[in-house]
């Protein structure tokens, strides 16, 4: 019985979540903030990984990231809705809905065509956002400070409260995703990746898998965008720019598609490398970041997730 408990996904996740929440009390404020931001980016990366399992890569996740961010931001500034949890949830649903609407168009394409079309969507959105002066145009706008169940935490604790909310919401989403990945439609995605034609002959629809995965990816991306906007307190069209989308692709490549927690670790790693290279090498930080990207692609081609998998496989063998 006890052996089984340790291997139970729910138990492991809750253990990890409570651990992280406790750690949040010990680490300095800036690191709490960096982790929150890494979670936001990790959520989008998780979306890409969901697509990657079906053999698709989106170069335009900035599209959903931006929609999520602007949804949260506009609800905050225009409708006066400042509850962070509600904003995250609404952004998740709304962006998922947008994803569902455009997914049938995108799902007809594969490989580079899918990637480029998704990129096109994000750049069109960028072009539109930059031109709307009513919501700040290229400057973006500032979000009101967020509340939690009607309470506004004092500024010393605001970062930590958002961190806790982010960990809990993301934790449960990650658990659901793990179950989804291991479910029949989740596994069909892997089959589609291997041989799409054969999946069709067996009576499953590769098209439906792509639509479903894109919708999930959109919802996750939207939530990530909302979280990032709430954490930073500012939103601008840069959210949808192709360089932002590129970062998400990198995070997913660094993480690999084998493990869910690896995505967040990859996002955190990228965030830390970027922020420290910017701090200590202000003139050449791009060079450091570039070297990091190249080295990680050369030395861990199948991603951080592959370490995790090896680790757990060895664990099982040793029993």
């Amino acid at each position: 019985m006890s052996e089984k408990l340790y291997n139970n996904l729910l138990f492991q996740s809750i253990f990890l979540m409570s651990f992280l929440i406790l750690v949040g009390l010990l680490i300095p404020n800036w690191l709490v903030f960096v982790i929150t931001k890494a979670i936001a980016y990790g959520l989008v990366g998780l979306g890409i990984i969901t697509l990657m399992r079906g053999g698709l890569v989106s170069f335009g996740q900035g599209f959903v990231f931006g929609i999520g961010g602007y949804t949260a931001g506009l609800l905050g500034t225009q409708a006066g809705l400042t509850d962070a949890m509600l904003l995250l949830f609404i952004s998740f649903l709304f962006t998922g809905l947008v994803g569902l609407i455009i997914a049938p168009l995108l799902a007809r394409y594969r490989d580079i065509f899918f990637a480029m079309l998704s990129l096109a969507f994000s750049m069109v959105l960028y072009g539109i956002l930059i031109k709307i002066d009513a919501i700040g145009g290229s400057d973006g706008f500032v979000l009101p400070e967020s509340t939690y169940f009607g309470i506004k935490p004092s500024s010393e604790y605001a970062d930590y409260v958002l961190y806790v909310v982010a960990i809990i919401m993301t934790g449960f989403i990650s658990i659901l995703l793990r179950y989804y990945y291991d479910s029949t439609p989740g596994l069909i995605a892997l089959a589609v990746r291997e041989n799409e034609l054969r999946v069709e002959y067996l009576g499953s629809s590769a098209f439906n898998v792509a639509v479903l995965n894109f919708t999930i990816a959109a919802g996750l991306g939207g939530m990530g965008g909302a979280l990032n906007g709430i954490a930073l307190g500012h939103i601008d069209p840069e959210f949808t720019y192709w360089t932002t989308s590129g970062e998400f692709v990198f995070i997913s490549i660094l993480a690999g598609y084998l493990s869910v927690p690896a995505v967040f670790l990859a996002a955190l790693l990228l965030e830390l490398v970027r922020s420290f290279s910017g701090r200590y090498f202000p003139d050449t930080w791009q060079l450091i970041l570039g070297l990091f990207l190249i080295l990680s692609i050369i030395f861990i081609p199948s991603g951080i997730g592959s370490f995790f998998k090896q680790f757990f496989d060895r664990l099982k063998k040793s029993k």
Partner: peptide, 16 residues
Amino acid sequence: GATKQVQEFRNLVQRD
């Protein structure tokens, strides 16, 4: 971009 700057600003204030 502004988003990155907000983060760098927080790093300067909170970390440094």
